[in-house]
């Protein structure tokens, strides 16, 4: 309950001050380059990795990337770059 309250305050602050939400709220920033590449910044580690599915943990949730011939181009603690034929991206709570 307490965390939810803090989050709400943070959201309000970022709205008022126009500070990017990904920094203040610790949310992932996802960038697509066509359907060839996805950059996910601010992730919390990979959960599942196969040629067709990649599941990446984020703050309270999971990002699921579906596609074909998926390759992790680069992976460091803040950023993950996935390339291949990307079909869809889903968010799970």
């Amino acid at each position: 309950m307490k965390e939810a309250k803090i989050d709400r305050v943070k959201t309000n602050i970022s709205n008022v001050l126009e500070i990017p939400k990904d920094i203040l709220l610790d949310l992932p920033k996802i960038t697509f380059i066509g359907n060839l590449q996805v950059n996910i910044e601010n992730h919390k580690g990979i959960i599942e990795y196969s040629n067709e599915t990649i599941r990446v943990k984020m703050k309270d949730g999971i990002i699921k990337v579906l596609g074909m011939d998926l390759i992790i181009k680069t992976i460091i603690s803040e950023e993950i770059i996935i390339s291949g034929k990307i079909a869809s991206i889903d968010f799970y709570k």
Binding site: G45, I46, Y49, S50, N51, L70, I71, I72, K73, T74, I75, I76, S77
Partner: peptide
């Protein structure tokens, strides 16, 4: 994930 936490840099990972 463990390795990444340690700060090891991987690239071109392929299943």
């Amino acid at each position: 994930n463990l390795a990444i936490e340690e700060g090891i840099y991987f690239w071109d990972i392929r299943r």
